[in-house]
């Protein structure tokens, strides 16, 4: 996993704060052989779509402030849909 300990803790704490659960990291940052790349997070939470969207947005905004203007994508699965990316994130994802 290509994240520093501080970054892991920051992402973990932000997810707990806004969703009450830790996130899973997936995508290129899980692969030690790759360079750079976005930070892709996957979170499962039973929330209304509007609430989930607002929490996701506020969490990302917090992270831009604490980690700098990095490219952070947060995928929130509220159980409303069953998208292929959820499956990928569950299979690849590493708990933070």
């Amino acid at each position: 996993m290509r994240l520093s300990l501080i970054e892991r803790k920051t992402l973990h704490d932000a997810s707990l704060r806004w969703f009450g659960v830790p996130p899973r990291l997936f995508g290129s940052r899980v692969d030690d052989a790759r360079l750079g790349g976005d930070i892709d997070l996957y979170i499962e939470a039973s929330l209304s779509p509007q609430d989930a969207f607002e929490r996701e947005n506020r969490m990302a905004a917090d992270l831009y402030r604490t980690l700098g203007e990095r490219k952070i994508d947060i995928v929130v699965n509220t159980g409303r849909l069953d998208l292929p990316i959820y499956q990928i994130a569950r299979e690849q994802g590493v708990w933070l």
Partner: peptide, 10 residues
């Protein structure tokens, strides 16, 4: 400002 950044990214 950071919210706007997040919305732009989405």
């Amino acid at each position: 400002w950071t919210l706007q950044r997040s919305i732009g990214n989405i």
